[in-house]
Amino acid sequence: MAEGDGVVTRGIRIRLDGTERATDIVALHKWLEREKPLADLARIDQLRITEQSRTDEAGTPMGTGMDIVVAVLGGAAGALFQGVVDQVRRSVEAWQANRRAVEEGDPPQVRVEPVQPDDR
């Protein structure tokens, strides 16, 4: 592996507001994986989408809450990062619109925020 390959240099945390159904995290995660620009980056190992236990500000796990983390990998992360943030935000908005159309009730509110690898 070349230097910088597979190394997380920037990340994006996607946090649902706590009103989500148990299936919302899984559905949003799968939605993001199918979004072509994100899928293309994942295929060439420039991006990874994972779920992780939510933590409080002290780093302690909080209940069963989960966040989705989009990690931009390798040396190209700096140049790609803002475009990936914008794409993730558009993808989340599309998922919310789709969920609203196919399920009863409003979808959860979602925060999309850049984080440093250590802040996740």
Rank of each mutant, 00 (worst) to 15 (best):
E3W: 09
I25W: 00
F81S: 07
R21K: 11
I25N: 11
A2S: 09
L41Y: 10
Q109N: 12
I49T: 11
R89P: 03
Q52L: 12
P107L: 05
V26N: 12
I68R: 10
L16S: 04
T23P: 01
L38E: 14
D118Y: 13
A101T: 04
E51A: 11
V110R: 01
P117L: 02
Q46H: 11
I44W: 01
T64Q: 13
Q109T: 12
L41H: 09
L38M: 07
E57V: 09
L47S: 03
G74C: 06
D86I: 00
A22S: 13
S91F: 08
Q52D: 04
D17R: 07
R15V: 10
V72C: 01
V110S: 06
V84Y: 02
K36M: 12
E104A: 12
P114D: 08
L16Q: 13
L80I: 07
P117S: 09
Q46W: 02
E104S: 12
V7M: 10
Q82D: 15
E3A: 12
I44R: 15
P61T: 12
G59V: 06
Q46C: 08
A76I: 02
V112T: 14
Q52R: 15
A79F: 06
D106L: 08
L73M: 10
I68Y: 08
E20T: 05
F81A: 07
W95A: 04
T64A: 13
V102T: 14
V8A: 09
R90A: 15
S53W: 02
A58D: 15
R34D: 14
G78M: 01
R99E: 10
D119E: 15
R99V: 03
S91L: 09
G11P: 01
A101K: 14
G78D: 14
W31Y: 12
L47K: 01
R13I: 05
A39F: 03
Q116G: 02
I14C: 04
A22D: 10
A58C: 03
A77N: 05
H29Y: 07
R15F: 04
Q109V: 07
R10F: 02
R90M: 15
V70G: 09
R15I: 02
A42W: 02
A22K: 08
T64N: 13
G6D: 12
D118I: 12
V7R: 06
V102G: 06
T55L: 14
P37Y: 05
E57L: 10
G59N: 03
M62C: 04
Q82S: 14
I12C: 09
A97P: 00
V26H: 13
R100P: 00
A79T: 08
G59K: 05
P37M: 09
G75Q: 08
D45Y: 08
V92I: 08
Q87A: 12
R13Q: 09
F81D: 07
G83S: 11
P37L: 04
A97L: 11
T50V: 15
W31D: 10
D119F: 07
W95L: 02
D40C: 04
L16K: 01
E3M: 13
V88F: 07
K36Q: 13
Q82A: 13
L41S: 09
P61Y: 01
A58N: 14
T55H: 10
